[in-house]
C-alpha cells in the first residue's frame, strides 16, 4: 500500500500535493470571506426598521466565544506536536479538546442567533440582518466542517490508524482550522468591536 506515497515521493517543489492543495484552497477562501465581509460592511447601516448592530451585539458574550475559538488553535497545534513526537495519547486528548472548544463556539453562535431572533432580528428583517446571518453562518459552517474532520481524525486514531507518519494529515486539518480561526479574528474586530451604528 502506498498511502503515504505522496509525501515520500519528492515533488518538484519538495512539498506534498495535499498540503499545497490546502494552501491554494485557503488562498481561494480569502476571496470568499472577503466578499461576505464586504457585503456585510456595505449593509451595516441598512437596518431598516429592525434592530441595528449596535443595539443588539453582546460584546462580552462574543468576546468569550472568540477567546474559546482562539484557544482551540492552541490545542490544535498541541495535537499536532504530540503526534509528531509519537505521543498518541496526548494527540487524542488535544484533538478532542479542539473539537469540544469548536463545539462550544458553535453552541455560543446558536445561542447568539436565537437570542437575536427573539429580540426581533430575523434573517429577513433588513439588509443588515441578512448580511449578518449569512456572514457568520458561513463561518459557523466552516467551523462545523472542521469539527467533523477533527472527529474523523479522532475515530481513525481510536481505530489505531493515526500514527506519527500520518502527522501531515493532522497538519492539513490544522491549517484549515487555524484559517477559520484567523477569519474570526478579523470578523470579531471589524464586525463586533469597531463602533457600530445604533438605531
Amino acid at each position: 500500500m502506498s498511502e503515504a506515497a505522496t509525501t515520500e515521493h519528492p515533488t518538484n517543489t519538495g512539498i506534498s500535493h495535499n498540503k499545497l492543495a490546502m494552501w491554494v484552497f485557503l488562498g481561494s477562501e480569502c476571496l470568499l470571506f472577503g466578499a461576505l465581509i464586504s457585503t456585510y460592511l456595505l449593509y451595516r447601516n441598512e437596518f431598516h426598521t429592525g434592530p441595528a448592530p449596535g443595539d443588539i451585539f453582546d460584546i462580552p458574550f462574543t468576546s468569550v466565544s472568540s477567546f474559546v475559538l482562539l484557544m482551540s488553535s492552541l490545542t490544535m497545534v498541541l495535537a499536532l506536536s504530540a503526534l509528531k513526537r509519537g505521543d498518541i495519547r496526548n494527540n487524542r486528548l488535544w484533538l478532542l479538546t479542539t473539537a469540544l472548544l469548536g463545539a462550544l463556539f458553535i453552541g455560543g453562535q446558536v445561542y447568539e442567533f436565537t437570542s437575536f431572533v427573539r429580540e426581533g432580528l430575523g434573517f429577513t428583517t433588513s439588509p443588515f440582518s441578512s448580511a449578518f446571518f449569512t456572514l457568520t453562518g458561513f463561518h459557523g459552517i466552516h467551523v462545523s466542517l472542521g469539527i467533523v474532520m477533527l472527529m474523523s481524525l479522532l475515530i481513525s486514531s481510536l481505530r489505531g490508524n493515526l500514527k506519527e507518519k500520518n502527522s501531515e494529515t493532522v497538519e492539513i486539518v490544522g491549517l484549515y482550522w487555524h484559517f477559520v480561526d484567523v477569519v474570526w479574528i478579523f470578523i470579531f474586530t471589524v464586525i463586533y468591536l469597531v463602533p457600530n451604528p445604533t438605531s
Binding site: 488562498g27 481561494s28 477562501e29 476571496l31 470568499l32 466578499a35 461576505l36 457585503t39 449593509y43 441598512e46 431598516h48 434573517f123 429577513t124 428583517t125 433588513s126 439588509p127 440582518s129 441578512s130 448580511a131 449569512t134
Partner: peptide
Amino acid sequence: FAMPVIAVALFLLIFSRQFGANFFNTEMG
C-alpha cells in the same frame, strides 16, 4: 481566486429568492 466571488454572489441570489433575504431589496435600502 475568481470562483469564490461568484459563489458568494450566487449564494446571495439563492438566499434572496429562496429565503427572502434582502440583499437586493431596494425598499429596505
